[in-house]
């Protein structure tokens, strides 16, 4: 069973004078352990598609199955629960809680899941160690660089032991060196822990590192290319 199945997925916004179809009849299957980039120019529907897959937005047509469950039919509260337990989010602007330390930011997701204090503290420390921030656990977001904040965001996304991580333009705010280091880290997590990553991006560095590139144009899938097959991420 594929991890994610999109059937004829559509999203139309009726807020403007003229309805805008942001996603048009997209059908995709994403397997576990994939390292997939959803690419396309601005306004092509990347973020909308990610929001639909992440259960942040409701489709106007089609269906979204995650691990066999049609999330489009879930009620609002069930969707929040579903996101908490199945999806890790990484945002372009990091979006950490500014009044929490790096460790507390990672712990917070587990607190929402009801994980005991001792367990969540231990896991938060392990995760921060694994993203190379073992020495920054007690730093607050404003004390960290953009790259470090994004690493904390990745650790936070992984804290809930999600089925996959959705990353919306994760390198957009980072310089090339930091972006490269972040990609290395995510690739390592994909390789070593089998974590599925789905990115929306127009960053060629990310596209180059992806093993599958889905290109959107005007909300529709223009191409779906597998690359670097058999090549191990380094």
């Amino acid at each position: 069973m594929p991890l994610i199945e999109l059937h004829d997925l559509s999203k139309t916004y009726n807020t403007a004078a003229v309805p805008v179809q942001a996603v048009k009849n997209v059908s995709l299957q994403i397997e576990k352990q994939e390292f997939t980039a959803i690419v396309g120019p601005s306004g092509s529907g990347k973020t909308t598609l990610l929001n639909l897959i992440g259960g942040l937005d409701k489709p106007t047509g089609g269906s979204i199955f995650v691990e066999g469950k049609d999330i489009a039919t879930l009620k609002a509260n069930d969707l929040i629960d579903f996101r908490l337990h199945h999806i890790g989010f990484v945002f372009q602007a990091y979006n950490l809680i500014p009044v929490f330390t790096a460790k507390e930011n990672v712990e917070f997701i587990m607190l929402l899941q009801g994980v005991s204090r001792a367990k969540r503290e231990q896991r938060a420390l392990e995760l921060l160690e694994s993203v190379g921030l073992g020495d920054k656990v007690n730093s607050f977001p404003p004390q960290l660089s953009g790259g470090q904040q994004q690493r904390v965001a990745v650790a936070r996304a992984l804290a809930s032991r999600p089925s996959f991580v959705l990353a919306d333009e994760p390198t957009a705010n980072l310089d090339s060196h930091t972006a490269g280091a972040l990609l290395d880290m995510m690739a390592q997590l994909n390789r070593e822990y089998g974590m599925t990553f789905i990115f929306s991006t127009h960053d060629p560095r990310v596209i180059k590192r992806a093993r599958r590139v889905v290109t959107l144009e005007d909300g529709a899938v223009k191409s779906d290319v597998r690359q670097n097959e058999g090549k191990r991420e380094t």
Partner: peptide, 16 residues
């Protein structure tokens, strides 16, 4: 508002 949006997105229930 943005922060609240993020927290709800990552799985924080509104009542919390």
């Amino acid at each position: 508002a943005k922060e609240f949006g993020v927290l709800i997105s990552v799985g924080m229930k509104r009542k919390r």
